Amino acid sequence: MAKECVKSPLLVSIQWRGNGGKMDIPSKPHPGCPCPRKSTVPHPPSTDKNKWQNPATKATYKIEKILFNKRILGDVKKLSPLYQTSALEGFHSLILRFAPKNVAFSYLVMLCRLYLAAFHFNENSGRSQARTAAGELRFQIKFPKAKRGGHVVSMVKTKYTTEYVSELMDLLFNKVIHDPGTFAAELRAVAVPGFLCSQYERPEKADAIARHVSRFSCPGGVGAAPALGGPTSDCAADVPVTDREEGRIITH
């Protein structure tokens, strides 16, 4: 249903609401949508009354309560009409293997690691399902924590390849080593952005310490940090040096 309208999430939500009653309604064309839509449902209506929802039953009320939930309707508007995000999420997970978050990398090193992750993903994203020696498709059973003891069946893909590594090694030994100046010049030409903190004016350390006011500096905790460019609080001068210990203010 989400694929029937590419440009209008609101119309997708309206059709979702219409399908909630009998789960099968005619699909009428509307202006502004480039996708071809038929004037009738793609399959003939069922003659079996058991397959239709009776709007006067308690079961239908419960289904409508779930389908017409505000969060569900908000998610329906965001459904991807063409592509799914599972591949993008898989790429983000792969980036963590090449560039873990608990390690700090410089800009160029991070850029190179992202390139390696892209090479690996592009080479292995379209792997097919593996087969046994007898030619049967391979599956595996998993027990996700969210299933609370239940299992899911997923296919086993063929083993990943690293042919891009051979190509990079061939480039390194056959071209880079013989003429490193060309590649070094291209590397120096990369525009490396500055640190985020370099975008702001750095104050003098002595001035910053003099303007610093903690809520533990005043008896009763009324001290507050002064506004930028405003006067400092008087309570900071009343208490010379303060320390915090078990919620009490101790003066030295």
Rank of each mutant, 00 (worst) to 15 (best):
V6R: 15
K7H: 15
L11F: 14
V12K: 07
V12Q: 04
S13N: 15
Q15Y: 13
Q15D: 08
Q15G: 13
R17M: 13
G18Y: 15
G20E: 00
G20V: 00
G21T: 08
K22G: 07
K22P: 13
P26A: 10
P26W: 14
P29E: 03
H30R: 15
H30S: 14
G32C: 04
C35N: 12
P36H: 03
P36E: 12
R37W: 09
K38R: 09
V41Y: 10
V41S: 05
P42E: 03
P42R: 14
S46D: 12
T47F: 00
K51D: 07
W52S: 04
K58A: 15
A59N: 13
K62V: 06
I63C: 12
I63R: 11
I63E: 12
K65L: 08
I66N: 01
L67S: 12
N69H: 10
K70Y: 07
L73S: 06
L73Q: 09
D75W: 00
V76G: 14
S80N: 14
T85A: 10
S86M: 15
E89P: 08
E89F: 12
H92N: 14
I95D: 02
I95G: 04
I95R: 06
L96H: 14
P100V: 00
P100C: 01
K101R: 02
N102D: 10
A104D: 11
F105V: 08
S106I: 02
Y107G: 03
L108R: 10
M110F: 02
M110Y: 09
L111P: 03
C112Y: 02
R113Y: 00
A118F: 05
F119Q: 14
F121P: 01
F121K: 13
R127V: 00
S128L: 01
A130W: 08
R131Y: 02
T132Q: 12
A133E: 13
F139V: 06
F139Y: 10
P144M: 01
K145Y: 03
A146K: 15
R148C: 05
G150F: 02
G150H: 08
H151L: 14
V152R: 02
S154Q: 11
K157Y: 14
K157V: 04
T158F: 03
T158N: 13
T158E: 12
Y160N: 09
S166R: 09
M169Y: 04
D170L: 07
F173V: 09
I177Y: 04
H178G: 10
P180E: 04
P180I: 03
A184D: 06
E186P: 03
L187E: 00
L187N: 02
A189R: 13
A191E: 01
P193S: 01
F195P: 03
F195L: 07
F195C: 00
C197M: 04
R202N: 05
E204Y: 08
D207C: 02
A208W: 09
A210T: 07
A210K: 04
A210R: 09
A210S: 12
V213P: 01
F216E: 09
P219G: 05
P219S: 13
G220D: 03
G223N: 06
A224V: 07
P226Q: 08
L228N: 05
S233W: 15
D234Q: 09
A236R: 05
V239P: 01
P240A: 04
V241F: 06
D243G: 14
D243T: 05
R244H: 13
H252N: 11
H252D: 06
H252G: 15
